[in-house]
Structure formats: C-alpha cells, structure tokens
Computed example of a mutant assay.
Amino acid sequence: MTVFAQALHADLFGLPADDEPLPTALDTLLQATHTATAPEQQTAILRQVAEQLRNGAEIIQRYQYRAQWDRLPDDVAEQLRDAHDQAQQVAQTLDLVAPAFSSPPAAPELPGPQSRHTAAPPARPTPPAGRRR
C-alpha cells in the first residue's frame, strides 16, 4: 500500500518515481527542487546538478581551447579557464554536501543540567577583618 501511495504522490506532485532517472536539463531540475521532499530526492538533485556542472566545465574548456586556437585575445582564454575551474570547484562542493540532505539532522542539544555551565558561582569576598568593639 505504501508503494502505491508513494507512486500516487509522485504523480500528483510531479515527483520522479524512484525507478525513473532524474531529468538532466537544468530548468527541469529546477522544477524538481520545488517538489522534491524526500531527502534522497534532494541529494539526487544536487548530485545531478554537480554532474551537469562537470559537463558545463568540459564545454567551457573546449571553448577555452578554441579561443587559444583561434588566437582570440589572451584574456578570453584566461576568463574561460577561470570559469572552468570555478565550475569544477562548485561541482566538487556539491558532491561533498549532497549526502548531508540524506542524513538525519543531528539532534539539537537541549538546555539542561548536562549542557549548562555548571561551575560554582564565585565565592563572596570575605570582608576585611575589622576592629572588635
């Protein structure tokens, strides 16, 4: 029954079924982010975006080489090289953070005797010894 309910929910809200591959077009992935509620779906979307960024980095690199081959101004190839490196760095970052969306969040530490600062309050200063009357 649960499988049927999940499939119906996916159809009603446009979620990809578990056995269907995620879309590869970035605009379609953007739409999927609006309906992806399961942690595994969110992780899969981030991983797919990372893969698309790697593809984009490869495209940028080809144009970088083309700019060098066509002897375009040096700054064009340099800017494309920077864009390539940045796209790869973002893809790597997404690969690192994506699993966090599938992991249960850490339980917040509740205030209590264990988490409070339990140091004894400072001792009251002893009044100076005075004269006795």
Rank of each mutant, 00 (worst) to 15 (best):
E78S: 14
E78H: 13
E109G: 05
P108D: 03
L96Q: 09
L22S: 11
V3S: 11
P113F: 11
R47Q: 02
A91S: 15
L8E: 02
D95I: 03
A100H: 02
A120S: 10
D75P: 04
I60K: 08
R66Q: 13
P125T: 05
D75C: 08
A107R: 09
P125L: 08
L15P: 00
Y65F: 10
T43C: 00
V49N: 01
Q114I: 05
A98N: 00
W69Q: 15
H34A: 15
V3Y: 12
T24F: 04
A77G: 11
R116T: 11
L72E: 08
Q114D: 03
V97T: 00
P105F: 00
T37M: 07
A32Y: 12
D95L: 05
P73Y: 02
Q88C: 14
Q79S: 10
L72R: 12
A32V: 12
R62E: 09
S102I: 01
L12C: 10
D85A: 10
Q114P: 00
V90N: 07
P16C: 13
P104Q: 02
E78T: 12
T28L: 15
R54G: 01
Q92L: 06
Q68L: 06
F4Q: 06
P127G: 06
A123E: 14
R133I: 04
P127E: 14
H9C: 03
P16F: 10
R116V: 15
Q79A: 12
A25L: 06
D70E: 14
Q92K: 11
D19R: 14
P125V: 10
T33N: 10
P104A: 10
H84E: 14
L30C: 07
Y65H: 12
A44L: 13
D19C: 05
D19F: 12
G56E: 03
L29S: 12
I45P: 01
T35K: 05
L30M: 13
T118W: 15
Q88D: 15
Q114H: 04
Q114G: 01
Q86R: 14
T28D: 15
L80P: 04
A87S: 14
Q41A: 12
G14W: 10
T35L: 02
L72K: 09
A17C: 11
E40L: 01
Q88K: 14
A44F: 08
A67F: 02
D74E: 11
E40N: 00
P104C: 00
R124H: 07
R131T: 04
T24N: 12
P127Q: 08
D74I: 06
A44Q: 13
Q86F: 01
P122R: 10
E40G: 01
D11C: 07
T118A: 11
E58I: 13
A44I: 09
L15G: 03
Q52N: 09
P128D: 13
P111K: 01
V90G: 05
R131V: 04
L46D: 01
S115L: 03
A7P: 00
G14Y: 09
Q52T: 05
R71I: 08
G14I: 06
Q41V: 05
A129Y: 01
I59Q: 11
E40R: 00
R47N: 00
Q64S: 11
